[in-house]
Amino acid sequence: MKISKLSIVLLGVALVAPFVMYPVLLMKILCFALFASAFNLLLGFVGLLSFGHAIFLGTGGYVTGYLVMNSGLSPLLGILAGTAAAAALGAVYGKLSVKREGIYFAMVTLALAQLMFFVFLQAPFTGGENGLQGIPRGFLFGFIDLSDNLNMYYFVLAIFLFGFWVINRTIHSPFGQVLKAIRENEPRATSLGYNVNDYKWAAFVISAALSGLAGSTKTLVFQLASLTDVHWHMSGEVVLMTLVGGMGTIFGPLVGAAAIVGLQNFLSGGELGNYVHIIMGLIFIVCVLAFRSGIVGEIQKIVKRNFS
């Protein structure tokens, strides 16, 4: 794979960033950037709008949180277990939801996510409304203390880079090309002999697993797993991040996640804190009406127009 100059610059920025900005905020951005990228794999590259993706984020978080807290699992194994749980749930939910298309797909994923929301609400091991609190970050490989924010930051960055690499490999693989073909013209892909639903399902599982990875990591960062992560609001937020950044672009979800998390952080500090949902809603409306390509999409258009 070719590594562009842009990627090297971005990596440089990411390595220096914690010395300039608050590391916890940066880690939050990285987790959501991974979550949004995983979501974008489905929406941007297969054309499937999942409205229940928060459930994979939250499942990863709860499973990691519970195991690290109660079974004394190491952080790495905890994250692996959380990711595996999200992948397993994604395998089941994917099988069910790829049976329907378009708007129905969105409704099915939302309803399935709500089903699991109630399970987490009532199950004895999730702590109900309080969630799981005080989850220890532990020691990576037994000797790197993750309670140090800087150590944790580089750990999160490594996880993010791994997830982002998986998504990139998927998009640029022959498998990814078939996904794009399905997005562009599904009957044609079928007539070429591809089992469209199997491809959609595989993409769904990858997306769910990486969402779970993001959720597991986020749980360790904040030492908390709660119902917020599995609520439909969260599913809406990841749609918004992808939309704002530019769906179907590689870097769009990163930019979108940084923009939305940054905005939320900014709003919650000031007197506009009560207006967060209204502002999110307005951004949704404005983006859909006038700004459908998103930030990265618009930049790409300008670059294309002027430099090629």
Partner: peptide, 17 residues
């Protein structure tokens, strides 16, 4: 049509908020 779905979702967020 997914865009109009997102649009109405935005309207819902604004009203509820």
């Amino acid at each position: 049509h997914l865009y109009s779905l997102l649009l109405t979702f935005g309207v819902a967020l604004v009203l509820q908020g």
